[in-house]
Structures are given as C-alpha cells and as structure tokens.
Design a protein around this nucleic acid. Structure first.
Length: 785
DNA sequence: GAGTTTGAAACT
DNA sequence: CAGTTTCAAACTC
C-alpha cells in the first residue's frame, strides 16, 4: 500500500485527509504494495497520517484472505471509543477471563454508570441501568439498532449474505455482552451468553487457529467487503477498556488464518459487504490511541492494526490515504473487547492502517494469566499520549464527545447523539458479516489470531469520545506511520474526522433518516469514513439537499452540485472554515452537513488545494521570543485601526504583529488608543459584574425573606406569615425604593451610592415588614388564632 | 431591524 | 502577486 509521502503529508493540514486519492484506489486490487507477510511477522507499512507513531507498536497487517473490514471498538469503561475507518483493518481482541463484553458508547440519555475493575483474574465490568438481555437477541438495524444474531456457522452468514441481509451474530454463550448506545432508548443492552468456558493460558500461536473455536462473539460495525476481520486472541472474558492506560497498536501485514480460533470476542466494523469471503472485516482505524489494560499476572494483549493486502487501499502506491480531522484533533478512542476465554494469551486487533492525525485509538488489552503477552507499547509514545479521558455516558462527564459516523451510505445506520455535548459524535455503522480468519501477528506479540466468521452484526453503535476543547490542543508534528511504530499524539483538540470513503462512493441519501439514524457503509464500497459532527447536526439530516460547490470535479453531477450559488460550503462560512458542520446558523441551502458529505469533502479538498492552511487555526503560537499567541497570517486592516472587531487580531484579543499588513494600526502594546479601549472595556466589564452581583444578592435576599415568612403559625415556629407580603406591601416597598432612587438622582449621587441607598431602603422596608409580621404573629398567638 | 462599514477569502 | 469581487460579521443608526 502506498501512502502519501511524509513530505506531501506534511503539506496537508493536520485535520484534512485527502479522500480523493482514495477514490482512485482499486479496492479489489489483489496484491497491493503490501506483501502478505507471514504470520507473526510484521511488515512496516507506510502510512499517511499526521499522527505520530513514534514508538507504539503499530503494525499493519495484511491479510490476503480477509475480505472485509471490521472495526471493533468497545469501551467497557466510561470512556468512549471511536474508530474511524478508511482502510482495511481487521480487528480482533481477545480477553482473558472476564465474561463481560461491554460496548459502551456514550449515550445522551444514558444514566447507566459503568464501573470497571481491573483485576488479576480478569476485568469485570459492572454497569448500572443497563438493559439485560439474554442472547441471542437481535436489534434490528431498521430500528437503528445493533443487530446481534446468533449464528450457528459461517454458512449461515453466507446464506444471510446471499439473502441480501447482513448477518450479525453473537454466538458465544456464557458470556455477557453489554452494548450501549443502541437504539433510541439510550439504554445500554446487556447481552448475557451462557459461558462455555475457555482455558486461559493457551498459547496464541498457530495452534489456536487449528483448534476449534468454541466461542466467538463478534460484533461488527459497518461492513466492508474488502477487508476481513482478524480475530486475535482467545479468552472467555470480555476485555474492558481502561481509559487511563495507553496500549499498543500494531499495524502489520496479516496473513490469512484459519477460522478455527479459540473463543474470541470480535467487535468489528465492516466497511462493506461485497467481499466474497464471509470473514468479518475491520474497518480501518483512522487514528487512535491504544489503551491496554494489563493485570499484573496476565500479560497484556496487544491490539493490532492489520490491513489485508488484497484490498488494502494503502497498498496502492501513489495514493493518499489521509484521514484527518478538521481543525482540532479530537480523541478517537478505540475500545477493544477481549474475549472471555483465556486460551489465547494475547489479544490482537487488526485494523486498517489509516490513522488520522491526532486521532487516537483506544484499545484495551487484557492480559491473560496463563500466557504472557508482550505489550508493544513503547514508553516513548506513552509519555506523549495523554491518558484517555473516561468516557462519559449520557454526558455525565463534562468532557465533550464526538460521534464518528461512517460516511458510507447504508440504510441501517443509526446516528447517535450524545446529549449535552455540542461536539461531535461518532457513528459507527456495522454492516455485513463475513466469516474470516486472520492471524494478525504483531512483531511485539506472538499471539495468533484466528477469527472464525462467526458473527457479523451491524448496526449503529454510538461511541462517545471525550474531546478536549480546542484551546487546550497541542499539536504534534505529524509523522508518517510505519509499521511497528507507535501512534502517539498529544492532540486533544476537537477534530473533525474526515470520511475515509472515496468520494465517488459517497452517495448520501439521508433525507428520510430520522435523527439518530446512522449512516451505514455502502455495500461494495471501499473505505468507510467517519465524520465527526456536532450534536446538533442531527437536525440537519432533515434539511433539504441543495448542493453548492464551487468546484465539483470528480463528483457525480447527479448530486446536484453546482446547481446553487455559494452556500455554506465555501470559505465564507465560519462553520465550514472552522472545520465544523453548520448548526443553527442561518445559512441557506446549507451543504455543510453530513447529508452532503460528498460535496463537503470536495469543498474541503478544494479549499485545501487552494490554501493548505485553510483549516488551521488562525491564532497560533508566535515565534520564539514573541507573544504566545499571534495571528498566523496577520491582519490586513485599513480603516479600523485594528481596534475594532473587524480586525481578527483585535477580535482575538491579541496585538498585531510584524506579519500584519494593516494600515494605521493602533493595536500595539504602547498604543494609547488601545489602552483606552482596554480600560473602557475593563471598566464596563467590572460594572456588569457588579450589577450582576447586586442583582444576585437582592434576589437572594428576597428569596430568603419569602422562605422565612412562610406561614408556620400553627407550628408556633419562628417563621412569619408570608401573607403579610401582600400586594399593597410590595407596592409600598417599591414606592419607597423608587423614592430613594429619585432622591439619589436628584442629589446626583453616583451609581454605586444610589444603589447603596436603594438597598438600604429596601432593608428598612424588610425590617418593617418583618416587624409587622412578628407583631401579627404575637397577636395571633395571644388570641389562639 | 435595516443599512453601512469592514476586512477576510475567493476570484481573476 | 496584486487588484477585484464576494461575502458575512461588525457596526451604526
């Protein structure tokens, strides 16, 4: 697979991925640049990403046999998980002994709390407020829910596929699968499966592949025919993600493996369903952090990002695979789910190579006690990586969330929205299933991953990812990804994840989708991308589609592009310029929404072609020795003197710098005009604060008075009858206050003094009211009334 | 709220 | 790169 060269990559904005290049990539390319590697061997794969992968174990696995992409993300803990696709990444995660598999995307209304404990024996996840269901159960995609079907065999999957349906199966019993963020109710779903038991400590090597896979639990989100999911580890327990720990991600070429694998939980997202092989495929993960949860006894398991070589986009030379969020980097977390059985000591997740800049894959690795597993996480990368913020479900945590929405169009997709967050959401769409066996083996890990095409379930899975506000973002210099490299990023800013789907393949048809509907990956399509959209965006799905693009080259004209004049898909729109979707703005015929993602992407590309810095923040850090903040381009003011908000420097409350081309600038340190303005502004602010404080205090006093005057005569307590605060009393009080105000005005008292006088008068009034009430109370008591 | 001013971005 | 046009926000009345 070819990746954009580092030089070229460096030219790309951190947040933008070049999706056009992806278009040209033949998905069915039998043998890309990536050579099928032997099991257990890693092959470095160049990756275009701005995500530094210095030392983490990130390996791309190419699996020739893998036909579909699967993306697996689960977040046992409060942290949310987001995986973006764009390439083929079979993902498999095996866990040790914990029987619980938890998918916990953040839900807007979810009140359930998840408690995850990491113990030697395994990871347990307790959730509250979760619906508990016994497997098998099905959540129909039509209902915008994840469909989990229990499939007896891969043939069933095949049959399902032939029937045009997307089989989604969870076939492991004795285990629990918690799926949250499914459905409209917002209630997490607990799938409880009979536990068949697995032997921990079974070697992960090839022996696993041949051994019958007693249990598979595969949850696939999104389908992608080209890629096959690789199921790595065995284990009866579902791994839980520990948000605070960083784990390793391996991207390595993967060789096809036999389907017979020990019990595994596979959560995958398939990009498309066209793949002949019924193997589950893992959609490519754009970027993310890998988090590993290791128990002291059990060796950590690694999450492997693998790319099947046949279909991997990345293998195509000269093609750009860029998945980058716009604007600010957000945390994209991938939560891996470990299988309960411990047969395989190591869990591996094969993921498509694409790693977006700044995005983070969160993978939880759960080590099994029996088999020691090497954690590929490197120290160097971990230090750069911020600990994953716990995922707040239902907006419990104050962190912001994003929803990654697979851009591939499919009716089944459910859009998920996290409440209380204006930031983006992650929409994961699961599609077709395919039985596949993969043996992603990372260099650092010796485990063999064999996934049997047991389950492919699709459905929109909402996962929330805490997002750090843009102000706190620290951008890391993007580095080309290579195999066995660690993906590290310190970027925490809000980011827009650009869809990895080739533009021509995007055929948005969302007009009829209700809010919360997730877009499903297009069958037979190539990459599935994810778009990060603001929470409010849900309402945009119902907007009428008009396309207005300055340039629509490369896009089908059927979309209606170019039919309209400019609309929010140009640089004039702040939302668009900020890399955000329009929301609640007054733009007409807005195309800056997910419905017109194709056009939007094209517009983004056009903007980037024109100005690579278009989506970068204007206010950046100045040179050394200069102030911390300065305008990246400088203003060009001519008439405002840079002392009005017309000036971007002034608006940003920074002074003009040497790069500004302004005329008559007064926005510099020693400028008296600036100082005067600042002084006035400060004075105004102080005044507002004082007034607010006074109002608050007065309101509090009134409130307190009313409370104390609550009629409690019968009780004989100290409260006074509030009935004394009659209309007449209020009017009299107000007259007293007005009179006091007039008095202050006549005597030309300053405002502060006038306020003091009024408040003082008000106090007198209150005292008189209280006194009267007290007398009335005493009189009433004396006559036993 | 309508009209004007302003400067960034797009365009040539 | 410079000049012009377009646009939306800031500003004024």
């Amino acid at each position: 697979m070819d990746v954009v060269s580092p030089e070229l990559n460096s030219l790309l904005p951190d947040e933008i991925m070049d999706t056009e290049a992806i278009e040209d990539i033949p998905h069915s390319q039998p043998d890309g640049s990536m050579v099928q590697s032997e099991a257990g061997s890693d092959t470095s794969v160049p990756m275009e990403t701005d995500t530094p992968m210095a030392s983490e174990n990130l390996s791309l696995l190419s699996d020739a046999t893998l036909a579909e992409h699967t993306q697996v993300l689960t977040s046992p803990t409060d942290s949310t998980l987001t995986i973006s696709t764009g390439s083929q990444l079979p993902l498999s995660i095996s866990s040790t002994s914990s029987p619980l598999l938890t998918l916990k995307p953040s839900m807007a209304t979810s009140t359930a709390t998840t408690k995850t404990t990491d113990s030697v024996t395994g990871t347990t996840v307790s959730t509250g407020g979760l619906q508990k269901l016994t497997a098998p159960f099905t959540i129909s995609a039509a209902n915008h829910q994840i469909i989990l079907n229990k499939v007896a065999s891969s043939q069933a999957t095949e049959a399902a596929k032939s029937a045009g349906t997307q089989p989604q199966v969870i076939k492991q019993e004795g285990q629990k699968l918690l799926v949250t963020a499914i459905g409209k109710s917002g209630q997490p779903i607990l799938l409880q499966l009979p536990h068949t038991g697995g032997k921990p400590g079974i070697s992960q090597t090839s022996g696993d592949t041949k051994s019958p896979a007693p249990q598979f639990k595969v949850v696939t989100i999104g389908g992608r025919p080209e890629l096959k999911p690789v199921v790595g580890s065995t284990g009866n327990q579902v791994t839980t993600l520990q948000a605070q720990q960083l784990k390793t991600v391996q991207i390595a070429k993967k060789t096809p493996t036999s389907s017979a694998a020990p019990i595994k939980f596979i959560i995958t997202k398939t990009v498309n369903s066209k793949g002949l092989n019924p193997q589950t495929s893992v959609s490519p993960v754009i970027a993310g952090r890998v988090l590993t949860q290791n128990s002291p006894v059990m060796p950590p398991r690694t999450v492997t990002l693998s790319e099947p070589h046949n279909t991997s986009i990345q293998s195509i030379p000269g093609k750009k695979i860029a998945i980058s969020p716009l604007k600010t980097p957000s945390k994209v977390t991938v939560v891996s789910v470990a299988s309960p059985t411990s047969n395989a000591s190591q869990k591996s997740v094969a993921l498509p190579v694409n790693v977006a800049l700044g995005q983070q894959i969160l993978a939880v690795q759960q080590s099994t006690s029996a088999s020691p597993v090497k954690v590929a996480t490197s120290q160097t990368t971990t230090q750069n990586i911020k600990p994953v913020q716990p995922v707040a479900v239902g907006g419990v945590s104050g962190s912001q969330f994003k929803t990654i929405i697979p851009l591939a169009t499919q009716p089944n997709v459910q859009q998920i929205q996290v409440p209380g967050s204006r930031f983006h959401y992650v929409r994961l769409v699961g599609t077709t299933t395919a039985s596949s066996t993969g043996q992603p083996s990372g260099p650092s890990t010796s485990s063999i991953q064999t996934a049997k095409p047991m389950v492919v379930s699709t459905g929109a899975v909402r996962m929330s990812v805490p997002i750090v506000p843009a102000q706190t973002m620290k951008q890391v210099v993007p580095k080309p990804l290579t195999s066995a490299t660690v993906v590290t990023t310190t970027q925490t800013q809000q980011r827009l994840i650009m869809p990895a789907t080739p533009l021509p393949q995007i055929q948005p048809n969302f007009t009829n989708l209700p809010p919360g509907t997730v877009l499903a990956p297009a069958p037979g399509g190539g990459n599935v991308g994810y778009a990060v959209v603001p929470a409010q965006y849900v309402t945009q799905l119902q907007q009428s589609p008009f396309v207005t693009l300055a340039s629509s080259s490369g896009f089908p004209t059927s979309t209606g592009i170019q039919t309209q004049a400019r609309s929010p898909l140009n640089g004039y729109c702040d939302c668009f310029a900020n890399g955000e979707f329009c929301n609640n703005c007054n733009c007409n015929n807005c195309f800056n929404n997910l419905e017109h993602e194709t056009e939007r992407l094209k517009a983004i590309k056009t903007c980037l072609d024109r100005n690579p810095e278009a989506f970068k923040p204007k206010i950046g850090k100045g040179k050394e020795g200069e102030s911390d903040r300065r305008h990246s381009k400088g203003c060009n003011c001519k008439r405002s003197g840079c002392l009005k908000n017309y000036c971007e420097c002034y608006e940003a409350k920074i002074m003009c710098s040497s790069i500004c081309k302004c005329i008559g600038c007064k926005n510099f340190e020693e400028s008296p005009e600036r100082k005067t303005l600042m002084h006035l502004a400060d004075a105004a602010e102080v005044r507002v604060q004082q007034q607010t404080a006074a109002k608050t205090k007065l309101s509090s006093q009134i409130s307190d008075l009313l409370m104390r005057t609550t009629p409690v005569i019968s009780s004989g307590g100290g409260r006074l009858p509030y009935t004394f605060v009659t209309k007449e009393v209020l009017e009299a009080t107000c007259e007293c206050l007005l009179e006091q105000a007039k008095k202050a005005e006549q005597t030309h008292q300053p405002q502060a003094e006038a306020e003091r006088m009024i408040l003082e008068e008000f106090g007198h009034c209150l005292m008189r009211i209280i006194s009267s009430a007290g007398k009335a109370k005493a009189d009433c008591a004396s006559i036993n009334c």
